[in-house]
């Protein structure tokens, strides 16, 4: 968004991330950053390793090599990351600005402490639970504390009743945002596909994340639903303190809403920039057209030629 930023620690910085599965190198020395208040898109052909990146960030996989740092505060001095890395600890708590080395943390702590929420490429709702229950489960940690690890809850303490009312309020807020209030008491598995996708996003938002990771949220949506999704994501970015990291194949979604695009191919980054830069990047075009490596340079040259031709025509 804003073109010039003060040099601060970015929200998420992925450095030299490598993930091997046996002999297969799924991610190969990937580094990129996601800024606060941005929608960052991660794109690439099938099997490029996008979901694997998500799984590393959210702790479902332990990276073979690399550092993934998340800084809650923009005022975090850059050397704080180095110092934390050397200290061997996993995080600086919120009082000190909140800095987390995600590759050292187990998955559930990443959501609970570092405040990263995610959705899945194949939807993972609690289908046998109601829509409302899905959103309440997402607030588990806060409610667990309020229920005094169930002891206060068992005796029906006021403080717990209040916390639960607040949880319901947050749930209804998000239900309203995704237009599903009328289906609050229906099982999540009964919803149509598009609603399930939005519900999964709402559920992730109920954990109050600083970073929301969405794995192909527009997959299988019709154009109308896809449009609604765009507005929902923009709303999250603009009105909440939540940045978005997005995997998406649908270029209309990517180009329309993202502030920053990272392109992966065979686990390596081939481009990184604004949507406009990416659109015209020869390496990206070659990757998407599925050109062999030897031909790639030829295509690049061709595109360069075309573009210079076009600009030459445009300028008098």
């Amino acid at each position: 968004m804003a073109a010039i930023r003060p040099s601060t620690t970015p929200l998420l910085s992925v450095e030299h991330l490598t993930m091997r599965f046996g002999g297969l190198v799924a991610i190969d020395g990937l580094s990129f950053k996601a800024e606060r208040g941005d929608i960052t898109a991660l794109i690439g052909p099938n099997g490029a390793g996008k979901t694997t990146v998500f799984n590393c960030i959210t702790g479902f996989y332990k990276p073979t090599i690399g550092r993934i740092a998340l800084a809650h505060s923009a005022q975090m001095p850059p050397h704080a990351v180095e110092r934390l890395t050397e200290s061997g600890r996993r995080w600086l708590d919120r009082a000190k600005g909140g800095l987390f080395l995600l590759e050292r943390m187990p998955d559930f702590e990443i959501t609970a402490k570092a405040k990263i929420a995610r959705t899945f490429q194949n939807i993972r709702l609690f289908t046998g639970m109601t829509v409302l229950e899905n959103l309440i489960v997402a607030q588990h940690n806060a409610l667990m504390r309020a229920s005094g690890w169930s002891l206060l809850g068992l005796i029906g303490a006021k403080s717990f009743t209040k916390a639960q009312a607040e949880a319901i309020e947050r749930a209804t807020f998000w239900l309203d945002k995704i237009n599903l209030t009328h289906r609050a008491d229906d099982p999540a598995g009964d919803l149509p596909y598009g609603d399930q996708r939005r519900l999964e996003i709402a559920r992730a938002m109920c954990t109050r994340p600083r970073l929301l990771c969405l794995d192909e949220p527009a997959a299988g949506l019709n154009p109308r639903e896809s449009h609604d999704l765009n507005s929902l994501l923009r709303y999250i970015r603009d009105e909440h303190d939540t940045a978005i990291l997005l995997i998406e194949h649908d270029m209309s979604v990517v180009m329309e809403i993202s502030d920053h695009v990272v392109v992966l191919e065979h686990g390596a980054k081939i481009a990184d920039g604004t949507p406009d830069e990416i659109k015209n990047d020869p390496a990206v075009i070659a990757a998407y057209l599925g050109v062999e490596d030897e031909e790639e340079s030829a295509v690049e040259a061709e595109i360069a030629q075309l573009q210079s031709g076009r600009t030459a025509e445009g300028t008098p």
């Binding site: 998955d107 959501t111 899945f120 046998g128 229950e133 997402a138 588990h140 809850g153 992730a204 954990t207």
Partner: peptide, 28 residues
Amino acid sequence: KLRRLPIGRAWEALREDEIACRSLGIDT
């Protein structure tokens, strides 16, 4: 009673989908 408390809901969520539970910060 427990079923209507967060712990009980987490049990049922665990039965439904353990991975989703972990993605929501639940210590499974």
